[in-house]
Computed example of a mutant assay.
Amino acid sequence: MEPSPMVWHTQVVPLETELEKVSSHPECSICFNTYDNVFKTPKQLDCTHTFCLECLSRIMTTSMDPQNSKIPCPFCRQPTTIPKKGPPALTTSQEVLCRLPIHQQHEEPVWLDGERLCYQRPIEMPGVPAFCICVDIGASGHSGVSSSQTRPRLSLMERMMDWKRLLIFIFLMVLLLGIVLWPLQCIVTTGSLRCSPQNMHMSTTTASTTTVTMLL
């Protein structure tokens, strides 16, 4: 009797499942980075093509016609008029934004500051001032993401508090150095931790010797 042939079972992943995984993380067609709700916000052009805010801002700084304030679509070359407030004021693709994680489905306010895109990070802890995160979009900037953090504009009272803290810190450092270095100086010069009494004794002995010598 011939042995029965062995049958191997393999699990095949449906193509639709793979497509769902890819579509669940939409990416910008220029930089291939995943969209978000800050610098990578999906912005839709007049031709309905969608790209991230940062890439469109870079295109604006390098290829926009200053006379008509329009940028061409990287795919179809159809021009789109840039609003007065810059690329952040372009239409946001709600279709793409709704496919992001829940915490990224609310667009954060981003503004154009010269050749930088800026976003003010909200206060996360009490007493900690908010700070701005900026991305350079200038023609001289790097091709990749180059973010820089800038200090917020502090009020006069906050600046005075910073100066007071700095003065207190300097005073404490000087006091600490004096406490540590004074015994070391005594040990090096006199060989003992008692500097003042021994110095006074030596001065008195020297004065007495000088007086006796003058009398003789």
Rank of each mutant, 00 (worst) to 15 (best):
S143K: 06
S69Q: 11
S29V: 02
I133S: 15
D36H: 04
S155V: 04
I133L: 14
R58I: 03
W111I: 14
I170N: 12
L45C: 00
S63M: 08
L184W: 11
L117G: 11
Q120D: 12
Q120T: 11
V128H: 13
M160D: 04
P183C: 08
C195I: 05
D46T: 09
H25N: 08
N37S: 09
V110H: 15
L167I: 08
D46I: 01
P101E: 01
H49M: 05
M214W: 04
L156G: 07
E18F: 07
L167V: 09
C98V: 03
P3D: 13
E2F: 11
Y119F: 15
M1I: 12
S196N: 01
D136N: 15
T34K: 07
D113W: 14
P72C: 12
A89Q: 10
P183W: 07
P197S: 08
T210H: 15
N33R: 03
V212T: 14
D36W: 01
L184R: 12
N199H: 03
T81N: 07
E124Q: 13
T50A: 00
T17W: 15
E54M: 07
P129M: 04
K84W: 03
T50W: 00
I82N: 06
V145K: 12
Q185H: 13
E115V: 08
C132S: 02
R151I: 02
S93I: 00
N37P: 12
A130F: 04
P88L: 03
P129V: 01
M1Y: 08
I133A: 14
Q105Y: 07
E18P: 00
I102V: 15
L193P: 09
Y119N: 13
S4N: 14
I137V: 14
P26F: 02
F75R: 07
T81W: 02
L184P: 04
L19A: 12
I102C: 13
P83N: 09
F32N: 04
S23Q: 08
D136M: 05
F32P: 05
V12S: 09
E107G: 03
M60S: 14
P101V: 10
V110T: 04
C73S: 02
W8L: 09
R99N: 13
R77D: 01
S4K: 14
V96E: 00
V96S: 00
Q185M: 06
Q67S: 01
S155Q: 06
R194S: 08
P66D: 05
K164E: 10
S93F: 02
V135N: 06
R99E: 03
M157T: 11
V212F: 11
N68Q: 10
W111F: 15
M173S: 07
H9D: 06
H106D: 10
D136W: 02
V38A: 06
G144E: 03
L154N: 06
T91Q: 05
R194A: 07
P42M: 02
G114K: 12
F39N: 12
C118A: 14
M6G: 11
C31T: 03
M160C: 11
H9Q: 12
